[in-house]
Design a protein around this nucleic acid. Structure first.
Lengths: 185, 185
DNA sequence: GCCAGATAGTCTCACCTGCAACTATTCTAA
DNA sequence: TTAGAATAGTTGCAGGTGAGACTATCTGGC
């Protein structure tokens, strides 16, 4: 895995004669992926997710959709529908449906028929699910703290605020209540 | 798509009698997904990606790996290997391989044998690829500007700096040269 | 009451992607 | 020199995921 030195393989990157220099984009037309916010956000999110996945996947055998269902149900005091979870987490309803099926089989959640609307079911954590939730959450919060430890308290607040502004401009902000109104997930 | 009012569907979320209140997590043990940085980053990245995808997918029929290959080759002055692109973009080498195949078929990139190391190929944009690149990049940059327009210039700089700190702490920072040394992609 | 349209949830299908095996080639060290 | 390890790139396979069809149910207008 470890390579003797970056230089060893860097030889491959040395310039190759290019007879088309005329068509090479000018500096101001080029785009440095490393400075491109969408790319950086993607990469950062993927890396942070991977760091957390160690906890919920390797330790508890959960995948991301399953963990999102648990997180939503664990946070809310009341039982709620799969549709609600999908809207909250911005995850496709078919993905949530599969996660719910899996969690039901593992007896981590249970569902009760909604007599007022028999199309939907109310989901909630079982005792077993709550135990897992209470065990898992502190681990994830610890991971988050470790990852964000590179920022000062002040920077962290600023970061949250700026993320919030971008979310807002993308219409990503939803309260628990508003999430109920979201469709398409 | 539009629903009469959030309240219309919110009825579903009203509390259900729960005979297990004793096991409900306490406030400080719960985790609000909406305030959890990893979740927010994921959601934000997905949303930003979706906003950009309109440009490269619908307009040019490119998927994310293909666009990343183009972006890497377009930014660099010299031809470089698939391995290099994979390391740069943190994308799995098999994914890059498929993107390269597709781009070769579309004559957007070309590859030349590396006589110094015949295991690898040097990739570079064709004239057609450069034309597409120069057409696409301004559109993507415009999208990025639109998305980030909610931040002031000062906030934008701060945001970049904070993202940079997190990237650094996750060892995500690489210069073009360092990327050559990365394995596993 | 009844029908058209909307909604919750499930399922199939197609696609995408990572893993790991594989080939070809290069490097390393005896 | 040469065998074994490492590397670049490709491909088969399996698992995950979104789109959209489908069923059951609900809502609103007539």
């Amino acid at each position: 895995m470890a390579k003797p030195s970056p230089a060893a393989s860097r030889q491959q990157a040395k310039p190759v004669e290019d007879d088309r220099n005329a068509a090479v984009p000018q500096d101001d037309e080029r785009l440095d992926l490393f400075k491109f916010a969408p790319f950086r956000l993607n990469r950062l999110a993927a890396e942070v997710s991977a760091a957390l996945a160690v906890e919920y996947r390797e330790r508890y055998g959960l995948d991301i959709p399953e963990w999102r269902v648990l997180a939503t149900l664990g946070f809310r005091r009341e039982a709620c529908s799969a549709q609600y979870v999908a809207a909250c987490t911005r995850t496709h309803k078919s993905t949530i449906s599969r996660a719910v099926t899996s969690l039901l089989e593992r007896r981590l959640i249970e569902r009760v028929e909604n007599t007022e609307d028999r199309r939907e079911f109310r989901l909630r954590l079982t005792r077993k699910g709550k135990t897992l939730y209470e065990e898992l959450i502190p681990r994830l919060q610890q991971r988050e703290r470790e990852i964000m430890a590179c920022l000062s308290a002040d920077e962290r607040r600023t970061f949250d605020r700026l993320i919030g502004k971008i979310e807002a401009s993308l219409d990503l902000i939803q309260t628990s209540e508003e999430a109920d109104a979201k469709q398409a997930y």
